[in-house]
């Protein structure tokens, strides 16, 4: 065995300690930099979509040396993420803390009444938006969204079973929106994670799902699942064929299919309240560099993400609008906790 190749661990240890020393000596410069380990909080458990993305970012930063101090991922998923958000809300002025969000930024406070909202934190940047696709089992007779919609209408209430992740969160919100459009109630079955939902659909324990692309793409490629439509205003841009010569871009939008519903999930990064502009700028810079790496681009492509990137005022406006949308969707569906 060649001696020159160190174990990845020792080299990381070395790198970390060297970087720590480097960070110390250059801290006199005007530009703000984190002075100690930065905690990257995931308001969800290990293994989910947000966790994956956070660890991806951690890995990219480590591999390309994008930050002077190490970034560590911490899961605080209790109470549908409330634990993580409350932690950040309570760490006013701590610049060494970040949090990645899911839709639970909007849904958890509404559904549970736990007091936090996005204005309790400092928005850094929108990293990407996660798409939602309407899926059915490939063995089912429904070739298009309109086939399935007519089957829902013909079958009557609770005939069709929609599986989704969690309760009163994004998947159930979309389900409620579909119910409002069709006027027919579906049975919503909540599962722990998106992977489970996709597998349950393959096993035909449920009749449809609104999985994110990355959760169901493997089953689509294997010919087990069929995408009906995507819950976005325009088709996905990815033209590479995935299954049977079809690409993500071949999936019609749900609006085209007569189901006028759009929903995107925010993958954004926030800081605790009271962060200075310099601190925000620093992290925006790091995240921009992350977005430039080939690993990130590949990941975006595999997961058919919407790669919108927003910061500052534009991001805040988007957040305001998204908060309103969630409130009205959840109020209509009766998901808002009575206080």
């Amino acid at each position: 065995m060649r001696k020159s190749k160190q174990s990845p661990l020792t080299s990381t240890v070395l790198a970390a300690s060297i970087l720590a020393v480097a960070g110390w000596s250059t801290s006199a410069r005007a530009e703000w930099k984190p002075t100690k380990t930065v905690e990257f909080i995931v308001p969800a458990g290990t293994g989910g979509g947000a966790d994956q993305m956070a660890r991806m970012i951690q890995g990219i930063i480590q591999k390309h040396n994008l930050m002077a101090e190490p970034l560590v991922v911490i899961n605080k998923g209790g109470g549908a993420g409330a634990e993580g958000f409350l932690d950040v809300k309570g760490s006013k002025g701590d610049p060494n803390k970040l949090i990645i969000t899911l839709s639970n930024l909007f849904t958890t406070p509404l559904a549970t009444g736990v007091p936090f909202k996005w204005t309790d934190m400092t928005p850094v940047a929108m990293l990407a938006l996660d798409e939602f696709v309407f899926w059915v089992n490939a063995k089912s007779p429904y070739q298009s969204a309109s086939d399935y919609i007519s089957a829902i209408k013909a079958g009557g209430p609770n005939k069709m079973k929609m599986g989704g992740t969690g309760s009163k969160q994004e998947d159930q919100i979309i389900t409620a929106a579909i119910e409002q459009t069709t006027g027919v109630k579906m049975t919503y079955v909540p599962y722990k994670g998106g992977g489970d939902v996709a597998a349950q659909l393959v096993g035909q324990h449920i009749t449809s799902s609104v999985n994110n692309p990355i959760e169901a793409v493997a089953q689509w490629r294997a010919g087990e699942l069929r995408p009906l439509c995507v819950f976005d205003t325009q088709r996905l841009p990815y033209k590479e064929p995935i299954a049977n010569g079809k690409a993500w871009s071949d999936i019609p939008t749900c609006k085209e299919a007569g189901l006028d519903i759009g929903y995107l999930m925010l993958r954004g990064v926030f800081m605790p309240p009271g962060a200075t502009q310099e601190q925000v700028d620093y992290y925006v810079g790091v995240l921009q560099k992350v977005r430039e790496t080939p690993e990130w681009k590949d990941f975006m492509k595999t997961g058919a993400f919407n790669t919108s990137f927003m910061t500052g005022k534009q991001f805040e406006d988007w957040l305001k609008k998204a908060e309103e949308t969630h409130r009205s969707l959840m109020e209509k569906a009766g998901f808002v906790a009575k206080s």
């Binding site: 661990l9 240890v13 190490p70």
Partner: peptide, 8 residues
């Protein structure tokens, strides 16, 4: 914890 595993 702090150096190897990066668990604060």
């Amino acid at each position: 914890f702090e150096v190897w595993f990066l668990v604060p």
